[in-house]
């Protein structure tokens, strides 16, 4: 019984999250529709460069409005106050995903400055050691993998495919 209730609460939280996504997408879509209207038309054709985007964003906005109406009707009012705490729980449960994206952002930002091999070595060491079980063999394997995929891959692409990965400044 409590499992059913948990499932229902999760579904309601999902519905609210989707509702917010519809609203955000609608805002973007409407602003892009308005921007598309400012694109000048060509005298060589009936439709200008802005016509197709306007068509797409008009349809998208209509669909999003109908989705918003449907979601608002489905979601019970008592579900909204719970939503903030459910989001916090959801984010906490996915801390590794957040860490992964954070590491990726730092990695990609640092790569042009310090070069592919060093950036990749550090990125892989941090992520592999964080995700792996805390045993000596796992740490040793992490170091080997980090070396192979940083310096090894850099060498492979340079020597075999003539693709030079960022060298840093």
């Amino acid at each position: 019984m409590s499992e059913d209730r948990d499932q229902m609460l999760t579904q309601q939280a999902g519905e609210i999250a989707r509702l917010l996504s519809y609203v955000a997408l609608l805002a973007v879509s409407v602003s892009m529709f308005l921007e598309a209207r400012t694109i000048p038309t060509s005298r060589f054709e009936a439709l200008g460069a802005g016509a197709f985007p306007m068509l797409v964003h008009a349809l998208l906005s209509l669909l999003l409005i109908s989705a918003i109406i449907g979601a608002v009707r489905r979601i019970p009012t008592e579900a909204y106050p719970r939503f903030a705490s459910q989001v916090v729980q959801w984010v906490q449960a996915r801390r590794l995903v957040l860490l992964m994206f954070l590491c990726l952002l730092v990695y990609v930002t640092a790569m042009p400055m310090i070069g592919y091999p060093i950036a990749t070595l550090v990125f892989l060491l941090i992520l592999l050691v964080t995700l792996s079980p805390k045993t000596k063999s796992a740490v040793a394997l992490s170091v080997v993998l980090a070396l192979v995929f940083s310096y090894g891959l850099n060498w492979l692409f340079a020597e075999m495919f003539n693709v030079f990965l960022p060298r840093g400044r």
Partner: peptide, 28 residues
């Protein structure tokens, strides 16, 4: 195990994306 797959395949994705156009901005 997944802990090996995820980070190494991520690096392969980064390298593959860069190799398409040799552009760092593609990575962002």
């Amino acid at each position: 195990p997944k802990w090996v797959i995820v980070p190494t395949v991520l690096v392969c994705c980064i390298v593959g994306t860069f190799a398409l156009n040799n552009r760092v901005s593609d990575l962002s």
